[in-house]
Design a protein around this nucleic acid. Sequence first.
RNA 1: GGGUUGGUGGUCUAGGUUGGUUAUGACACCUCCUUGACAUGGAGGAGGUCGGCGGUUCAAAUCCGCCCCAACCCA
Length: 907
Amino acid sequence: MSTDHAADTADESTPEATLDGDYDPSEVEPRWQDYWVETDTYAYEESDIPDADTQFSIDTPPPTVSGDLHMGHLYQFTLQDFVARYHRMAKDTTYFPFGYDDNGIASERLTERELGIRHQDYERREFQEKCREVCADYEAAFTENVQSLAISVDWDNTYKTIEPRVQRLSQLSFLDLYEQGREYRQRAPTIWCPDCETAISQVEQEDKDKATTFNDIAFPLIEDGNGAADDGETLTISTTRPELLPACVSIFVHPDDDANQHLVGGTAEVPLFGQEVPIIEDDRVDLETGSGVVMCCTFGDQTDIEWYQAHDLPLRIAIDESGTMTDRAGEYEGLSTEDAREAIIEDLDSEGHLLESRDHQHTVQVHERCEHEVEYLVTEQWYVEMLDRTDEYLEAGREMEWYPEKMFSRYKHWIEGLEWDWCISRQRDSGIPIPVWYCDDCGEAIFADRGDLPVDPLSDDPPVESCPACGGESVTPEEDVFDTWATSSLTPLINSGWDWNEDADESAETADSVDAESGKFTFDNPELYPMNLRPQGHDIISFWLFHTIVKCYEHTGEVPFESVMVNGMVLDENREAMSKSKGNVVTPAEVLAEFPVDAARYWAAGTSIGDDFPFKENDLEAGERLLQKLWNASKLVDQLAPETDPAEPDDLAAIDRWLLASLDDTVESITEKLASYEFSKARDELRTFFWSTFCDDYLEIAKQREDDSAAYALSVAHRTFLKLFAPFLPHVTEEIWQARYADSATTGSIHTTDWPEPRGYEADIAAGEQAMAVIGALRRYKTEQGLALNADLDRVEVFADVDGFADAISGAMHVGELVVSDDAPEIGTEIADIDLDYSIIGPKYGDQVGDIEAAIGQGDYEIDGDQLHAGDITLEDEAFEVREEHTYAGEGELIETEGDLAVVVQN
RNA sequence: GGGUUGGUGGUCUAGGUUGGUUAUGACACCUCCUUGACAUGGAGGAGGUCGGCGGUUCAAAUCCGCCCCAACCCA
């Protein structure tokens, strides 16, 4: 057995396990879950000489901590667990950590809700303390939930994304990227959530359909392209957002818009607000909706930003950070955007500027967290530069193995479509502070010392007495915090213990290509990095995975993952996304109240990796039945082969050798499939081999025998089956293992034993299959005759090469006398049909193939030794096969004539 | 609007990259069977021409084109 974690804690009492009675998962499953956690079964064993080749590290994206698990968690964690359990058994030491993502708006809002407080009322550190307290409760519940799914996480290796160690690391990352020249601070238009009052990034927005009104507004024309306009002439602009009128800076017309071409070069007056704005030509105008003449406001949408930059337009800010109208809006100042909209529509109407208001459906961008419509504001933010290195990031993606391969294209297209650098600053109170102060005199940014991290500029002093640039003595702390992705993208570094080490000497493992003046970046566990596997959903390829690659690559010069396993989303039974509004949500709690965890895992294993995956009660039932089958078969094995570790007999019976040789093939095949994340194929192949071949065929034979050879094969096969099933069905396999195989010498879990390897048995596989075919024929015969399957048969003659299997056949089928002969003296043979090998005759005879088929169909052919003359064509023997039909004139009944096999029953 | 992925018996699904005889399995369905563990079991059966159209080829579920439908990503 392999490294045995539980051996250290041998005094922990191993739960009692017996093979009596029925299998009761509701009692068994929690019992082992507790045992595994208590005995640290899944602890990562750091060896004295860390070696990247003998460990397997998984970088799990930390889930947001909030309340209950959903099916996506169950599914995703379980897939990760298959990988971890397989590798743990297959010689690797497995690093399977767990992270809690409690750094972000989600946990901040959770805390406010839970405690009935507002973050504004507390100092940042104080509020963060409260967050941690609230999250701790949720995390405990979450941990318990995950443990109850038998996820084999090393619970000594967990982290929280807000904990001080991670804060330090996140700030170190910021300083390092800045020193490398990868970060900058800039005042520019940003996507802004007026509800959360923070900048957000492109990926934090989502589409939302919204009912609104489209308003046609008449703008008095002052000049058209040819000079002064006629008095009273207007142009019409359709907008859903009249509250932006005070921010209007220009009007655009499409170059192909002949009807409005005369306006270009002119000016118009914005109704109610009076500013005169130019009319400009630009092909970004959408000709489909509205009047084809559009206003540009600073800023209503992204096109406005593009126009503002391309045409060097003035800036008119009418909406502030909280979504309130500014003094630019005149009498509407202080109103919310919504109230202002209504008031302005009313006033436009009463002054005769409103031509029409009609209902309209359109898509707006909202903040994914709070569903509030975003605004575009000009603010000062920190950015990570990315657009200049997209080629390198693409190459980094190419270096990873993608499972499934096709998911790489998502990554590729995302990078190719990048338009913004990464805005990493957020105007939130909770979060990891950006460790910077600014000189009040010259604006110089003063960065924290690495040794002092983590710091909070709002509470801590800067590392210098005065500004190093101008000598100024007063500074203003940065109030902003990092985007949560700025930290979540560091998980490979968090997991492998990346840190800045002041005193690192030359011999220490260097984690960074850039060696600063003193100290360097080091890894506590360099053998873990790069991580072997990153499992995750396909929905987060574009930001989480991408940002992780960017950050880790910039810090270490290495691609952080060897491979990526991408799972799909869990759908309902009708293949529709689960959502509260549809009312089709199924929760793990509901499922597990009805089904064993192992059955849920069986369902989860039914996935083709990368595809969306419907919830299927059928599969859970099938899983439950498999548990029972495994249990019952184990009981029979235990009866037939009470000795658990028998010596191999010298003369292994043909049927036993055949079973073990087939098992060898299965071991090899299952291993390959697990190693390449083909869970569904592994599961189904293992189930079929166990159920059909082992239980239905072999066990039925074995239970008629009582010899050492059978007992040996039974024991070896059973032991192997348990291990092969262990990653999928950890509870039932553990229970059976403990009941039958664990003894004082092998105390501990099946999950820390060695993965099976082929034992090198060779057998006449063809003869074995012939024998199974004979048994199949006899079963069919009994069924058709209305006989019980254990009914006696007087005499059976078999004409086939099943020599070594004769006893197996007669035992299993209760045959009194079994005669095996190679020839078929009493059997007459006639040709039933000719099978053509199209792969040979196709390329050779081309369109003559039809003639050959027609000739055979009409009986216009002749067999001449090895050759077949069909019509005008002569085929050589490799091109065809004669299918014969047997007739039997002797005593008894001929029941099977498949291929060259014949079975005669005399009863 | 652009892109990606998928569309195989009633349901879910394998196969598709390397075109080749009877398209895989599970669930459901029908018939039969209490076999030294399992009726949550066993044996057998019926059911599809592979979204639609067209093309390449002796031969297409598989390759190519167009169309339809669905999901996702990006505008």
